[in-house]
Design a protein around this nucleic acid. Sequence first.
DNA 1: GGTCATGGCGTTATCTTATTACATCGCCGG
DNA 2: CCGGCGATGTAATAAGATAACGCCATGACC
Lengths: 168, 168
Amino acid sequence: MTTDPHSTAGPASGHGHDHAHCIADALMRADALCAERGARLTALRRQVLELVWNSHKPRGAYAILEDLSQREGKATAPLTVYRALEFLVEHGLVHRIESLNAYIGCAAPGAVHSGQFLVCETCGNAVEIDDPRIRAAIGTIAAEHGFQVSRPTVEVRGTCTDCQEKTP
Amino acid sequence: MTTDPHSTAGPASGHGHDHAHCIADALMRADALCAERGARLTALRRQVLELVWNSHKPRGAYAILEDLSQREGKATAPLTVYRALEFLVEHGLVHRIESLNAYIGCAAPGAVHSGQFLVCETCGNAVEIDDPRIRAAIGTIAAEHGFQVSRPTVEVRGTCTDCQEKTP
DNA sequence: GGTCATGGCGTTATCTTATTACATCGCCGG
DNA sequence: CCGGCGATGTAATAAGATAACGCCATGACC
Ligand SMILES: [Zn+2]
Ligand SMILES: [Zn+2]
Ligand SMILES: [Zn+2]
Ligand SMILES: [Zn+2]
């Protein structure tokens, strides 16, 4: 749990990029988007969004809950986190990774997309992609079946480049 | 729960097809496949497979558990079902629908495929597809990212033809 | 400023889904 | 017969999610 290839807690985690910038950027875009839509990005919701963005790994609701409780200095109820997450998912700021029961910050909030992910089984990082070919293929086959799509889920499990290099 | 567009319990459910045949066929193929591989399709596992095949809707582990308990006339532990499901999934006889935490019989056991589904949010039926274009698109984009795929998950939520007709 | 409706949040309890740890049983080769 | 191994039984518990109820802050409206 703590012996992770990439750190999971602090900022500046992962592949040497400036993760603080990721977070700040995500929060800024969230502020803008919510302002534009008249949605209320309350302190709590903003806090949860920030915690979700603390790494590029999908995080479980209860993990976020722990972080939140710690930061607030008092115990918080699961529902608090779930409500915040529901808001964030509804507004496209966060995606839910179904195969992990976990949540991750959206890489392109505001844009119309459905969330496609490459999830590394070794390090736990998840990269969001939005490939038009996959979207098109799904659209085509759905049409062939007379199926009306509302929410496509694409989650590809496997091994990321970094982790392949580490175990040759 | 009981007011379902298609019945969920008895055989001969759904779109007027001979579902008893679906079940018999699935069991036969499972027998053959396991014999071929030297895998032990025990009475319990076969029973669970049959219960999974009782409809074309994904079923939760605890729902299967209830069925099993009822059929056996005695209470069964969750673990019993989970172990059977684990075996069935490992051997490709059953798929897990991640977005529903539920299980469904594989339409083409033995064939190499990963499981792609059109899941109707209205009636609950799930149709397994295996579209080469989706597979290809996923393969391509994964390669572009240097990502080594182990298990792609594609679950498309939406509305099936039947349900669209019923609510125009 | 006062009033009211709305929506966000806190509290508690409960439900569903899944796993861990350990004991037992039955088959099969030696 | 016996040891080994895979399958099953039993009990307890972890992890994920929701339901029911009520208080309080915000902001529109008078
Ligand atoms: Zn996104
Ligand atoms: Zn990795
Ligand atoms: Zn299949
Ligand atoms: Zn339907």
